[in-house]
Computed example of a mutant assay.
Amino acid sequence: MNRHERPTRHEHVKPHAEIAEVWPRDGHVRLVGHIHGRPAEGDWRLQLTRRGRPGRPLDYPARVKGDRFEGELPIADLVPSDPAETDEWDIHLTDGEARLRAGRQLDDIHGKKKIMVFPEQRVRGLRVRPYYTVKDNLSLECRTGAAI
């Protein structure tokens, strides 16, 4: 960088799984993005961790080519054993060493939680909807009953 260039906002963003596309349909949530700030070699998996209960994560294959990744999360796996429960699942991309939070940090849209609203899907009485957190990370909200 020469003396006339300013550092961009992206140079200070920690490594993460940058989400480009979210496709909630047909009983799955399909995610497409790229690995930011870390070499993308190796075998990567999408990992879902239940907020407040990190002990039993769910994980699914992720296809990686270059720094681009793609994977699907089946919503039927999120049906709680307690039908009155409401769950939130955080999404990470992991290669066994690194655990990168999935989110959308590299655009200039702040406050995605209120701006980007995804449709919900229903399976066996469960309503599942992807959403962006206040920190622009991607999570899944799962509820039983009437409304999300």
Rank of each mutant, 00 (worst) to 15 (best):
D95P: 06
H110V: 14
K135I: 01
E72R: 13
R30N: 05
R53K: 15
R38G: 00
L48G: 03
G96A: 10
H36S: 10
P80D: 07
K65F: 09
E97I: 09
R68A: 15
I115F: 09
R51D: 05
E97N: 14
L31F: 05
V128A: 10
W89H: 10
A62P: 03
R45M: 08
Y131V: 01
K65D: 12
R99N: 10
W44T: 01
L73K: 02
G125E: 08
L126N: 03
E41A: 12
A84N: 12
I109Q: 13
H28Y: 14
V32H: 12
W89C: 04
Q105C: 06
G33F: 01
L58W: 06
V117S: 04
V79Q: 05
E85Q: 15
W44Q: 04
G125W: 01
I115Y: 06
G111K: 11
G111Y: 11
V128R: 01
R101C: 05
L58D: 01
K112W: 04
E85L: 13
Q121M: 15
G42D: 07
L48W: 04
R68G: 10
D87L: 14
R129Q: 15
T94Y: 11
R127V: 10
G125T: 08
A84Q: 14
R99E: 08
K114R: 14
R104A: 10
L58S: 06
V134W: 05
Q47H: 00
R56D: 09
L73T: 01
K113S: 10
K112T: 02
Q121A: 07
D77N: 12
D59S: 14
D67V: 08
D87R: 07
E72P: 01
L106W: 05
E70N: 10
A76Q: 12
R68Y: 12
V134A: 12
R53V: 00
G71Q: 09
R56S: 13
Q105R: 14
G96C: 08
L126Q: 10
G33D: 04
D108F: 06
P80R: 07
P57M: 02
V64F: 06
A76Y: 07
A102L: 09
E41K: 04
T86N: 12
R124P: 00
R127H: 13
D43P: 00
R50P: 00
E120F: 12
D95R: 13
K113H: 13
R104Q: 13
Q105I: 01
D77L: 03
P130I: 00
G27A: 06
V117M: 04
D43V: 13
R25D: 07
A76T: 10
L126G: 04
P54Y: 04
V134S: 12
I35T: 04
A102G: 13
V117T: 13
